[in-house]
Design a protein around this nucleic acid. Structure first.
Length: 518
RNA sequence: CGGGGUGUAGCUCAGCUUGGUAGAGCGCUUGCUUCGGGAGCAAGAGGCCGCAGGUUCAAUUCCUGUCACCCCGACCA
């Protein structure tokens, strides 16, 4: 507070968008690549993704899903089968048209061997998986079919940002087929809950579960459900989606089965996915002006041990003490895995070392010097507290208490994020209040090129459901309905109750969540 | 894809208006001194100035094109 120096320049309040980029870089999470719109995910960042995969994969398996893998390439004709689906993705597809390179003029390589049918690099796999499902499913006894795939997909985005929107990204996509609409809808909601559970308990990111309006629906879906988190610039981030596809894809691809009466029926299908965007969301939820803050559940390392070794006369005993500390810590468990320890013996200055781990967001840092060895204690810094706020703890108590300390940090991050969301969520009942809420504070107009002004948040307001009205508000304020929330999420007092739409005076079924979004 | 901006050392940038093949800070390497805290001094390494054309005796500098990135829109996980 008194110390104005921060590890990240600019700070969140100075320029949020630039701050985000700097955190990604300073924390060694990812960097841009020579390939347009594609990122290199660095070990520290990839390790977070591996933890995300581990956590979600366990949940998918626990709910009866099996992993499989489908081709990267999708024949163009497959994509054409579902009309809305094509329309939704046509503008952002990478297409493979040749299968060979030949020497051309000037030593250049030129594509040759044109394909009879172009192949689309999957932007999502409904069509190729649907075609496969059609072969796998014959009887009602084959249902439900519950499949997940971990994969990369490509969407040729015009504007990209590391983790949040890249041309290629990593994700999982679940695809299921069911005998009845009820079962498929139940699956859609089950996976939405899995996502919310994961976001809140692993990423410590509070999310709102709800349904998308027609305008925001997945191309080809009957219903799209989502989890929405609030970032520190108060914009919403769609962190995961679960789609009820009805029989749209089943009919387009003839995914049929014979029921117990011998009738041929179309399946009811679902699909659901989360991506490396979750890492972007985690950054924007927790990181601060000193860099990344990793929730312990997904942190690449829980504890960093930094021995103070520069004094030759004490180096050996400090090292020995640390060796034992590291070994003891690794015998402890947190969140279903052994405590992950980074033993940093690099010969660089202690201050540099500390700040590197602060910027990377390691939850706990432990410094051990001769004085600590003499007193049998360790000097502990926590990423959820100030960098200088360190505490000396007897080594035994520290090791014994590590699980609780990590749990406390995890819980603290969630509590803080939720308080932030609550603070910036407002119940709004008049059009004027609504417009005021989303207008830049102080300055009236839009200044371009400057720092993104931080204002607004989530507005809980009634809505008559008219797409034209939603479009007009989007034009006016760049604000959209993020979701029509499920009841019972504690978003406001009269949650789920009918009321009056402040824009039209018409009847509204319930308050919806309005916000600017990524 | 529309509007604006920027491409010079690993990073952040100066130099270009008034053409003569390059600078700073940080980082990196080495040495000495420091050090329970993002050190000080010194010596080094590192760049065909985004790419391709053009004008010119000569282009980082002027002109044209192109590509990439950033910001604001539209689009999207």
């Amino acid at each position: 507070m008194s110390d104005a120096k921060t590890a990240i320049t600019p700070t969140r309040s100075e320029n949020y968008a630039e701050w985000y980029q700097q955190v990604v870089r300073a924390a060694d999470l990812a960097e841009t690549s020579p390939v347009r719109g594609c990122m290199v995910i660095k070990p520290w960042g990839y390790s977070i993704w591996e933890n995300v995969q581990r956590g979600l994969d366990g949940m998918f398996k626990a709910t009866g899903h099996k992993n499989a893998y489908f081709p990267l390439f999708i024949p163009l004709s497959f994509l054409e089968k579902e009309a809305e689906h094509v329309e939704g993705f046509a503008k952002e597809c990478a297409v493979v048209t040749h299968h060979r390179l030949e020497a051309g003029p000037g030593g250049k390589l030129v594509p040759a061997g044109e394909l009879e049918e172009p192949l689309v690099v999957r932007p999502t796999s409904e069509t190729i998986i649907g075609a496969t499902f059609a072969k796998w499913i014959q009887s009602h006894r084959d249902l439900p079919l519950l499949i997940n795939q971990w994969a990369n997909v490509v969407r040729w985005e015009m504007r990209t940002r590391l983790f949040l929107r890249t041309a290629e990204f990593l994700w999982q996509e679940g695809h299921t087929a069911h005998a009845t609409a009820e079962e498929a809808k139940a699956e859609t909601m089950r996976m939405l809950d899995v996502y919310a559970d994961f976001a809140e308990n692993w990423l410590a990111m509070p999310v709102i579960r709800g349904e998308k309006t027609a305008g925001e629906r997945f191309p080809g879906a009957v219903e799209t459900w989502c989890i929405e988190g609030m970032m520190q610039d108060r914009k919403a981030l769609q962190a995961g989606t679960s789609h009820f596809l009805g029989q749209n894809f089943a009919k387009a691809q003839e995914i049929q089965f014979q029921d117990d009466q011998g009738n041929r029926e179309f399946c009811w299908t679902t699909s659901w996915g989360v991506s490396t965007r979750l890492i972007g969301g985690t950054i924007m939820t927790h990181a601060d002006d000193d860099g990344m803050v990793c929730p312990p559940m997904v942190a690449p390392a829980h504890v960093v041990v930094q021995p103070v070794l520069h004094k030759p006369e004490s180096a050996a005993e400090v090292r020995e003490f640390c060796d034992r500390l590291v070994a003891d810590l690794r015998k402890k468990h947190y969140g279903g895995r052994a405590v992950e320890v980074e033993y940093d013996t690099r010969d660089i200055r202690g201050g540099d070392k500390t700040w590197q781990w602060v910027k990377r967001g390691a939850p706990v840092r432990v410094e051990v010097g001769p004085r600590d060895v003499a007193s049998g204690s360790v000097f502990v810094g926590r990423r959820d507290k100030g960098v200088k706020e360190k505490e000396s703890i007897p080594v035994g108590a520290f090791v014994e208490g590590i699980e609780r300390m990590l749990a406390e940090i995890q819980q603290g991050l969630f509590t803080r994020a939720k308080a932030f969301r609550t603070e910036h969520t407002r119940v709004i009942d008049s059009k004027d209040d609504f417009y005021d809420f989303f207008k830049s504070p102080g300055k009236g107009g839009e200044e371009d090129g400057a720092a993104t002004p931080i204002h607004g948040g989530f507005a809980m307001a009634h809505f008559n459901g008219d797409p034209a009205l939603e479009e007009r508000i989007k034009q006016d304020l760049a604000v959209t309905v993020r979701c029509i929330p499920l009841d019972g999420q504690g978003l406001c007092d009269d949650e789920g109750s009918p009321g009056t739409c402040p824009f039209t005076g018409e009847r509204s079924a319930k308050r919806v969540v309005w916000a600017k979004s990524y």
